[in-house]
Write a protein that binds this DNA or RNA. Sequence first.
DNA 1: TTGTAAGCGTTATCAT
DNA 2: ATGATAACGCTTACAA
Lengths: 331, 331
Amino acid sequence: MRKLTIKEVAQEAGVSTATISRVLNNNGYVNEDVKKRVLQVIDELNYKPNAIARSLKQEKSRSIGIVLPDMTNPYFMRMARSIQSRCVAEGYHLLFVDTEESARKEEEAIHFLTEKRIESLILAGTGENLELIRSVSRSVHVVLVDRRLPALKLDTVAEDNAQASKTAIEALIANGHARIGVVKGPESISTACERLEGVLQGLAEAGRTLEPELAFGGDYSRESGIGAARHFMEMAEPPTAVFSLNNEMTFGLYLGLQQLGIPLDRLEVVSFGDLEFSSLFRHRLSVITQDPQLVGEEVADLVVKKLGMNGGAVQNRIILPGWSPYRKDTN
Amino acid sequence: MRKLTIKEVAQEAGVSTATISRVLNNNGYVNEDVKKRVLQVIDELNYKPNAIARSLKQEKSRSIGIVLPDMTNPYFMRMARSIQSRCVAEGYHLLFVDTEESARKEEEAIHFLTEKRIESLILAGTGENLELIRSVSRSVHVVLVDRRLPALKLDTVAEDNAQASKTAIEALIANGHARIGVVKGPESISTACERLEGVLQGLAEAGRTLEPELAFGGDYSRESGIGAARHFMEMAEPPTAVFSLNNEMTFGLYLGLQQLGIPLDRLEVVSFGDLEFSSLFRHRLSVITQDPQLVGEEVADLVVKKLGMNGGAVQNRIILPGWSPYRKDTN
DNA sequence: TTGTAAGCGTTATCAT
DNA sequence: ATGATAACGCTTACAA
């Protein structure tokens, strides 16, 4: 079924296309009666303006790209939902791409979005594609979210990872743990680095260091959490506490313990990032809580503002994570 | 920074825009040397073709709309990821909208997507907007997913909800439960109806009926699961088993028990739809497992095929859910 | 093998 | 207050 165009509506209503356009966009002068008739014809014919043609003419896509590493992760999707709701209210729409932590997919995504002429790019990146991102940032407004790219001087909304991690380590030390395992993340991702930095600081201030065997190199995936469980629990002297640098790995850690037949409360655990189930079950699990909705609101705010003002100084917004220790009286 | 157009590239390369276009699209004849030079110029200038203009000219948006009720729900997002991956491979991209179960947002979304000239609409609907959807389906290929719209004769990929529910009830009956509570979903959503239907069948075949007080009217939200816990546990004679018709409500059910200070294994529970944590903790919880990835693949398959063939008979694909009973030896 | 030019469906400028 | 018409950036007959 061929789509109607403005021309046919004009013909049917007995006016010019210009008038239809004016009615559609509510601008310019147009007689009330004419307007009424035009609206009626539009309704009768069930005409829908072609947003593609409009975008081309106006040289405005009214679209915003958002590139995320994992769209099955509720953290990112809560963030995305809060961004989407604000952007839609402002007349923009989001083009989502899930990179599944792949630098190649990220690169493809950015090219694709550039061709779609996005007016703004929201990126929680893999840490790669630095040159590409720099180059893109010259023609479209880029906001980094969650993960920084310190090499790049771009608007950023992120959490204070180091501080929160330091607090977590201090708590574990205060609870008397001599051997604390750490499940690290990929070195290319800023949050992983900052979280590790916080760990090292916390240990240093207690006059300690991070023994290499107590630092497991994970990659933010569930599988690497399972690997960490195996690594730690097969040691001659396993740690008594573990700090997992993201929630997926925490989940994996517990899965790993279960596979090994080890009670889940054998370890005291701190997780950077909440798990859906943690409100239900707390096996000596404390959580650094994040606020994806707030992060999303800040991002949307930044985007909408910059889109309106057309530029401005680089902004850096920092969200403070929360701390939710397990309660010893429940499980 | 003004964006480059094909004209400037043509000028720089000393050829016509047509030639550039031919190089870009790899069609028509073009001299190897010329091609090489053009590609070099494109690279040097960092030219990116304008996808909006291309879409307008070709009268093809190469975009597919997908309307989901909850983009923070891993079930839908796993499905979405699997659809996206296939569609991107075929040169299409997805326009996501999250309706948050709101019929009004669904309506807005469909209008918006129509204006964007999507070539296909994938919809897990609220059950409302029937006329709108019928009307849209006359100009764009619609695939319903997860939730049917029996009034509409559209391609559908859904699960066999009734059968799976019946099996679940039979299992509970076999386990000796005399009083089985059911947490229902909204009547406007087909899955909720079909699941309830299965329950009634299962009971009927055992010569039983569903007592009104044992049927709690939920709305697929976590909150309504909490409400169900309260409702059931405050009864003079609470049920000994509960069948929750979706996963969010199951989660809420447990949260409710916890709030009431009732041990989570007081009830035997069956959940339609898995919970992230169920691989870790099983408090007498059996699960009807779904396969969002498979559902997504079927959807993508249908979409890609119909897009290629331009029509064809209405298809109905049914996915069989799995059954994962709790193991009595573990928790 | 390459170039010319029409046109995709709008909006916006300029007349009237 | 309304209408002609020239773009927007690309693709594609058709011509050369």
